[in-house]
């Protein structure tokens, strides 16, 4: 771990000011990803701004939805009564991720900002375009069974590791940020980015900006939803493929469909075309298969992860079935519904 200045901010304004224009500065809250990366010498902040004392630790009603402070822990969020009753998809996705200890420490803002999953990115002994732009991507043609099947580039095939973010993508949350140039709102779909030729950037935050709240819209998909996570062991492992699925149904007819995938791309993966395809259709396996086929049609395998395409196709169908039937996956129940 490198050495750094430590600043403990008392207000949001102080935090933003402390960051200033220092490109090596980092905000820290739960620290569960940043300290991990610092120990691998992947992140070497010159200045750490401790934001844990900022007044951003509440969940409040707003416009029929909920406004989640950036410092609300993953556990507090998942077990909040309002979240459990109105946004059970979000609660379930959070509980699918990491471990109880990590969820207790990790913050909402930090979860959104966690870096991508890739063996090479974490290993300073190897090249990596994300870590050292221009050095190359050995994951391509290397050990890549966990890597992206959607939206990857010749520069980077890493995946976004978050489960929570997959649910937030499906729920169409909005991320409120503040920074040197003031406040702005970022639609969740625009928050994370694909690697393109600039994989160093995981998201669209500008330098010095910090997440203040994550806002959930009124539409909560409380009745028909699921978070289905498939992985190499039954707990405490990142997703090979995960599916956040949600419906509004009129009887057996789909009024609205939301579907986001985790573990398959540099960001939570949505395909609006597939969601549109389902709209107005009966909630049948055939229609779910058609949506899944449409989604995986644009998947591109790497040398070792072709199986994820078929796994994703099947997981999408099952996730949509779970959501439609109102039998969401319980994360402690390892039998898949």
């Amino acid at each position: 771990m490198n050495r750094f200045d430590y600043v403990r901010a008392g207000t949001v304004a102080e935090a933003v000011q402390a960051f200033g224009s220092d490109p090596s500065a980092r905000f820290i809250a739960g620290g569960t990803n940043l300290i991990d990366l610092m120990k691998y010498n992947v992140e070497k902040p010159g200045r750490l701004i401790d934001i844990t004392r900022l007044p951003l630790n509440t969940i409040e009603e707003r416009d029929g939805g909920l406004r989640i402070g950036a410092l609300v822990s993953n556990a507090d969020l998942a077990y909040d009564d309002r979240i459990r009753s109105r946004y059970p998809l979000l609660s379930s996705a959070i509980l699918a991720g990491a471990s109880a200890q990590l969820r207790n420490a990790a913050s909402t803002g930090g979860n959104i900002n966690q870096r991508t999953r890739c063996y090479y990115f974490y290993d300073e002994g190897t090249p990596c375009n994300k870590r050292e732009p221009g050095s190359g991507c050995p994951a391509i043609g290397g050990v890549n069974r966990i890597h992206a099947i959607f939206g990857a580039s010749d520069a980077c095939i890493a995946t976004h590791p978050s489960d929570m973010c997959v649910a937030l993508a499906a729920l169409e949350a909005t991320v409120q940020v503040t920074g040197p140039d003031g406040d702005r709102a970022i639609a969740f779909a625009d928050y994370h980015r694909l690697p393109g030729d600039d994989p160093a950037k995981d998201n669209t935050l500008k330098p010095g900006e910090m997440v203040v709240t994550v806002d959930l819209p009124a539409k909560d998909y409380g009745q028909h939803h699921t978070y289905l996570k498939l992985r190499d062991r039954l707990s405490y492992a990142f997703a090979l493929v995960s599916v956040a699925a949600a419906f509004e149904l009129d009887g057996q007819t789909i009024r609205t469909a939301r579907l986001a995938l985790g573990g398959v791309a540099h960001k939570p993966w949505r395909n609006l075309e597939a969601e549109a395809l389902l709209q107005g259709k009966p909630a049948t396996r055939e229609n779910f298969q058609a949506a899944a086929d449409l989604i995986v049609a644009e998947a591109k395998p790497q040398s070792e992860n072709g199986f994820k395409i078929e796994l994703a196709r099947r997981a999408i169908v099952r996730g949509l079935e779970q959501a439609a039937a109102g039998t969401p996956q319980t994360q402690s129940d390892k039998r898949i519904q």
């Binding site: 090479y120 002994g125 190897t126 050995p138 043609g141 290397g142 062991r233 039954l234 707990s235 405490y236």
Partner: peptide, 29 residues
């Protein structure tokens, strides 16, 4: 079901050198 240290033969390096990516059974397994 789980354990596999994965080599990148081009580098000669085990790539999943941590307990997050080298899976040993967890309690839920």
């Amino acid at each position: 079901l789980h354990e596999e240290s994965m080599l990148d033969h081009r580098l000669g390096r085990f790539m999943n050198r941590n307990l997050g990516e080298y899976h040993v059974p967890a309690n839920a397994d």
